[in-house]
């Protein structure tokens, strides 16, 4: 016998089963704890409640009912507006920093990038608690502004308003926007920018005709994350937004946990999911078209 056969043989069946065995636990897990819960939300949204008890049914009454309540319309509109505003604000705020890190930071770029993302890992509850210290009537910002004589009375609109919610959300999702923008901008070759400038394009035209279109993929990916997360975010509006102007997520939580009307809350959750899905689908379509055009 030659040396090869000193090495023990393993059954080929086991070898063939390995890939499935590796993937199966995660897939099963995600089906039970992700697909099923989402399916349950869809299911419950067409059920009925009767004196706080769930009754299986198939009715669209919950959907009709929620759209008949103007308060819910207002909350939905406020959520979409806030998410859209936060998305635009994040894009504008993140772009120069992403550009700086990608093109000007040299060997510091790795550390600067990590430093942008690091606050994202701090518990959202703690970050929001910090903003309460900053934005309150007796908070840091008002104290400083009054000491500097910028304002006589504390600015009360800073906390418990859509403004504070927006600030909290921008703070929360800014890191998420820098990341894809950085990736897109670092893919722009300096030569292309050089070429535009050599062809006597002004810096402004170079920006609008070279840099901005080429960073579009990063802008879109960042926008999707910002918008989708901003739309469904609960902690920030609940702690910073106050109780007067409710966001959609607050209404859903209220419906579920305080009013215990699960079918109605589930129907609202489905509306939220549809919006999220629409945003994702739109961006996917755009990305697919854009990558088709450039042939990448």
């Amino acid at each position: 016998m030659s040396a090869a056969h000193d090495i023990p043989r393993r059954r080929p069946l086991l070898r063939a089963a390995l890939p499935a065995a590796g993937l199966l636990p995660l897939v099963l897990w995600q089906i039970v704890f992700f697909v099923v819960p989402v399916a349950l939300i869809f299911g419950v949204s067409v059920w009925r409640t009767q004196s706080y008890r769930l009754i299986p049914a198939f009715t669209f009454d919950n959907y009709i009912a929620i759209f008949a309540r103007p308060a819910i319309w207002r909350a939905l509109l406020l959520s979409v507006e806030t998410a859209a505003f936060v998305t635009v604000a994040c894009a504008v705020l993140a772009f120069p920093v992403a550009y700086f890190i990608a093109k000007k930071a040299g060997r510091w770029r790795g550390l600067l990038l990590v430093a942008v993302i690091a606050p994202f890992w701090i518990s959202i509850v703690m970050r929001v608690a910090a903003w309460r210290l900053l934005l309150g009537e007796r908070g840091v910002i008002n104290q400083v502004a009054m000491t500097l004589g910028l304002t006589d009375a504390p600015m009360s609109f800073l906390l418990y308003s859509p403004v504070s919610t927006a600030i909290g959300l921008i703070y929360a999702y800014l890191p998420l926007y820098v990341l894809p923008l950085y990736a897109a901008i670092s893919n722009i070759h300096d030569n292309w920018i050089e070429a535009a400038l050599d062809l006597n394009a002004s810096p402004a035209r170079t920006f609008f005709e070279v840099i901005l279109p080429l960073s579009a993929p990063g802008l879109v990916v960042g926008a999707v994350f910002c918008f989708v997360f901003g739309l469904g975010e609960f902690v920030t509006p609940a702690l910073l937004g106050g109780g007067k102007q409710l966001m959609f997520s607050q209404v859903i939580q209220d419906e579920f946990q305080r009013r215990l009307d699960w079918p109605s809350g589930a129907a609202m959750a489905v509306v939220l999911l549809v919006l999220v899905f629409a945003a994702l689908a739109l961006s996917m379509k755009w990305i697919r078209r854009a990558s088709g055009e450039t042939g990448l």
């Binding site: 030659s2 090869a4 393993r10």
Partner: peptide, 16 residues
């Protein structure tokens, strides 16, 4: 065949 023996069913680590 390696050394006159068919190795069709043998994994890389079972071949000399």
């Amino acid at each position: 065949l390696i050394d006159g023996v068919s190795v069709l069913g043998a994994a890389p680590y079972e071949r000399d």
